[in-house]
């Protein structure tokens, strides 16, 4: 009953054991969900291939035009076939994944960070601070996401950094609301009041009592958001607002494939499959994490 696991560890190694104990516990619960494990395997495999893209198919293959191979169907030489300019589709999917996934991950993190800080401040301090932040947010949210992002990209120019800025500004609003509501809930709780009665200051209460308890929800939302941003970023590229050509990028490839939909569907199928697979695997992981991190399901 009481004296199993981490509590049995003795001596100086206790602290590391204790930390591992919690991570291991979460992993144990994560493993229980089949979908999440499949998602994780899929994502790891995709990441491995994408990270090794240069070894498997050099970047030059993705941009080198070879008109004799124009619209070539999949074959042993080009396993995904070639596009309208005779560029190897496999190399383009691999290198496009690099841009797409790194934009998705970085934009998610920056928007999460920005949004969480603003949300925590708004929720904890309330009153005027809350009003100012939330009203400013209302203005942000009243403009449709896509319009807003387009405006930013058009104004600043389309490149990696500006795309990140645009996506961050489009997505941080979710986190402000999420974290604010979490903080509002949590700061009502007795252990926060108890911490205050124990003499803890605001910064300490936010850092040790509120954020760690909101972490589960934030992590889950972050993973789910990665999937959303992958799709959203493809949409932008599809509209011609993503990375400038000839850089390979999944949404851009879809956009180019549109004209050849009837004659050469493989141009569409491969990048679309890549988008679906990555979004799907991240979603599955997010679902699994939500169950693994939820303290109410502890058993």
């Amino acid at each position: 009953m009481a004296f199993e696991g981490s509590s049995m560890q003795k001596g100086k190694t206790e602290i590391t054991f204790k930390k591992q104990g919690q991570a291991r516990e979460i992993w144990r619960r994560f493993k229980k969900s089949k979908g999440a494990v499949i998602g994780l395997v899929m994502l790891v495999a995709m990441l491995a291939v994408i990270l090794l893209a240069d070894v498997i198919a050099p970047y030059s293959l993705a941009t080198k035009q070879n008109l004799s191979q124009k619209l070539a169907p999949p074959s042993s030489g080009h396993i995904f076939g070639c596009d309208a300019y005779g560029r190897d589709l496999f190399a383009r999917v691999l290198h496009g994944g690099r841009t797409s996934l790194s934009i998705a991950v970085i934009a998610t993190m920056t928007s999460c960070l920005l949004g969480s800080i603003l949300g925590a401040v708004a929720g904890y301090f309330g009153k005027a601070v809350d009003s100012v932040i939330m009203r400013a947010l209302d203005i942000f949210m009243s403009v449709p996401d896509i319009l807003f992002t387009m405006a930013v990209v058009v104004a600043l120019g389309a490149n990696f950094i500006n795309l990140l800025v645009a996506l961050t500004l489009a997505y941080f609003t979710n986190y402000v609301r999420l974290v604010r509501s979490q903080v509002l809930n949590l700061s009502e709780l007795e252990y926060v009041e108890a911490a205050r009665a124990g003499g803890a200051g605001s910064a300490r209460i936010i850092a040790t009592h509120i954020i760690p308890n909101a972490m589960g929800v934030i992590i889950v939302n972050t993973t789910l958001n990665v999937a959303k941003i992958i799709l959203y970023e493809s949409t932008l590229s599809f509209l011609g607002l993503g990375m400038p050509p000839p850089a390979p990028e999944w949404g851009l490839m879809l956009s180019e494939a549109r004209s050849f939909l009837r004659t050469s569907p493989h141009l569409l199928i491969f990048p679309a499959a890549a988008i679906v697979l990555s979004a799907c695997s991240v979603n599955l992981i997010g679902d699994g994490l939500r169950d693994a991190l939820d303290p109410h399901l502890k058993s």
């Binding site: 709780l189 007795e190 252990y191 108890a194 124990g198 040790t208 303290p295």
Partner: peptide, 21 residues
């Protein structure tokens, strides 16, 4: 003074401890 010279015990022990520490 709080916690050091005057300390308080709250009514419900179920909620007055931080569940993740």
């Amino acid at each position: 003074i709080r916690g050091n010279r005057i300390a308080m015990v709250f009514q419900d022990p179920m909620t007055s401890l931080n569940p993740v520490m």
